[in-house]
């Protein structure tokens, strides 16, 4: 049958949900082992943070889409949590292989890492649901208001921190569809072109530090 925008969107949603049928919205057994191997066990903090971010997400979702759609917000959030745990496990397996270590205490106790990872997973979920209408220039669905960088405002996340997880996210989730990889690439582009250069961006502090560290690699002239 011909591929209509609605059919394409439905397929993407089915594929996303299909890929998460065996995933849980709780950490898997493998993830729990990684948590227990940490010098400081992050389990409690992770669960607490997911709960808090869930409340914020559902509230902002309902404000944007309509209070009657609160249930939809919860469903989207649950899918995002499932995806983020799945990707976290895959990332840690890769890191274990690459670094030959099993103690990821610093990474797993880094709140910004977890928030950025959850935000990336939710961006994939939200973009999948909005998919068809956005691609065709339509804006009938109020969910188009939730497109990037909406999630950064909801979680009060610096764009530069979100940017840092994108590549590893794509590598860790090989079932990610082509159009979703393109979407994440566009988010990256948007961050580097504009959003990362807001006054409170951590990028300025990093640039200052790198200048103070003395002559290393020379920055390109501003015009370039």
């Amino acid at each position: 049958p011909p591929q209509t925008p609605i059919r394409a969107a439905m397929n993407s949603i089915q594929q996303l949900r299909g890929g998460l049928t065996s995933a849980s919205d709780q950490p898997s057994g493998n993830l729990i082992v990684y948590f227990k191997n940490c010098t400081v066990d992050p389990s409690e903090e992770i669960t607490k943070r997911v709960g808090q971010l869930g409340q914020i997400f559902c509230q902002k979702f309902a404000e944007a889409v309509g209070q009657r759609c609160e249930g939809l917000g919860k469903t989207r959030f649950t899918l995002g949590v499932q995806l983020h745990y799945k990707v976290m496990e895959s990332m840690l397996k890769s890191e274990e292989k690459r670094l030959s270590v099993q103690n990821f205490s610093k990474l797993l106790n880094n709140a910004t890492f977890h928030t950025s990872l959850l935000a990336s997973a939710l961006e994939v979920v939200l973009a999948t649901y909005v998919g068809g209408s956005l691609k065709n220039g339509g804006s009938e669905s109020p969910e188009t208001d939730l497109c990037f960088p909406w999630i950064l405002d909801v979680f009060q996340l610096h764009a530069f921190d979100f940017y840092k997880v994108i590549e590893s996210f794509i590598k860790a989730e090989p079932t990610l569809k082509h159009d979703m990889i393109e979407h994440l690439g566009r988010c990256e582009h948007q961050i580097m072109e504009s959003i990362a250069w807001k006054a409170d961006s951590p990028l300025f502090e990093l640039l200052r530090q790198s200048r103070e560290e003395g002559p290393g690699e020379q920055a390109e002239p501003p015009a370039t």
Binding site: R98, V101, L107, K164, I170, K171, H178, I181, G185
Partner: peptide, 21 residues
């Protein structure tokens, strides 16, 4: 992911990006 430009080298990963060991 063929059209995505991977900028990280093979020896870099998420741990380095979040300033971890």
């Amino acid at each position: 992911s063929q059209d995505y430009h991977f900028g990280l080298e093979d020896h870099e990963g998420i741990s380095e990006l979040f300033d971890c060991d």
